[in-house]
Design a protein around this nucleic acid. Structure first.
Length: 275
DNA sequence: CTACCATCCTGGTTGC
DNA sequence: TGCAACCAGGATGGTA
């Protein structure tokens, strides 16, 4: 379930296992996920030390001691499972296994295989094809109402679709777009170009607030993350509208949450509160 | 530019 | 109960 808050939660969960650790063993159990693994993937990672772990949008960035960066994306169903000391064969859908110099296993498990890995020189990271076109980090200081308004200006697409566009703002997905629009009182069907001024300012602030709340909630259930059972323990977030079709609106309690399909994906909103 | 669609893949849920 | 259809948190590429 990886949108920005989940990816950030995963990043934090990986830190104790990987930061400062050397990768003693790396094994790829298949040659490709969404895209082919980089050539000699396991060989190039084996023996490397993970200096730090960062994040850009929904990408996890592992900074290595040889000037390279391991880029990881969870896709729809990807997860990392940390096991302190595992002596068992790879689980079903476990495609990559890392074992650190402390004997900790970090397994990448991804049933749908929409995830990806790539290797990139640190100096060229911002020019990497996957990262170059990304819009601002919504939790960064450069993301403001004015910046959002400028990105939306002239767009004739519904605001829902515009916010899913990673070039506008990086890291939102289907759930948090619905949640942020609900908090901001903006209809998902409103044309993006009409979200300007105070409306854009409010939307930017609500985007930040909902992401921060989700990260805070994710952090609180992070314990489950390291269970060797393989159970990821993604936090059950209390969504206001997402997947709540037909339920009363938590704000006005009069309207019912509606579900519509935009660009082939479900959107949830309160027609009464959101204009 | 925009809207819409299909696609990658598996698994869980729903409906007959 | 069995089975098929449908749906899912992402991202891209093609078409009109």
């Amino acid at each position: 379930m990886p949108e920005l808050p989940e990816v950030e939660t995963v990043r934090r969960g990986l830190l104790p296992a990987l930061e400062g650790r050397r990768l003693a063993e790396v094994a790829a159990h298949r040659p490709d996920l969404r895209r082919p693994l980089p050539p000699r993937f396991a060989e190039r990672l084996t023996g490397r030390r993970v200096e730090s772990i960062g994040r850009r949008a929904k990408y996890i960035l592992m900074i290595l001691d040889d000037g390279m960066v391991l880029i990881a994306h969870l896709g729809m169903s990807g997860r990392f499972v940390v096991a302190p000391r595992r002596n068992a064969p790879p689980e079903k859908h476990e495609h990559v296994t890392f074992v650190t110099d402390k004997g900790v296993t970090v397994a990448f498990n991804d049933p749908r295989r929409f995830g990806l890995f790539d290797l990139c020189e640190a100096a060229a990271l911002s020019r990497h094809a996957l990262l170059a076109g990304l819009g601002p980090e919504p939790l960064g200081p450069q993301f403001t109402g004015a910046v959002l308004a400028a990105a939306l200006a002239g767009k004739r697409t519904p605001i829902k679709a515009a916010l899913l566009d990673q070039r506008v703002v990086a890291g939102l997905g289907n759930i948090y777009v619905s949640e942020a629009l609900f908090r901001a009182g903006i209809s998902p069907r409103r044309l993006a170009r009409t979200v300007q001024g105070a409306r854009a300012e409010a939307l930017a602030q609500h985007i930040q607030a909902v992401l921060e709340a989700a990260i805070a909630a994710g952090g609180s259930t992070l314990k489950d993350y390291a269970k060797p059972s393989g159970d990821l323990g993604y936090f059950q977030h209390a969504f206001a509208v997402y997947d709540r079709e037909g339920e009363p609106c938590p704000a006005c309690a009069e309207g019912a949450i509606r579900r519509i399909v935009q660009a082939g994906r479900s959107t949830y909103f309160c027609p009464r509160c959101q204009r």
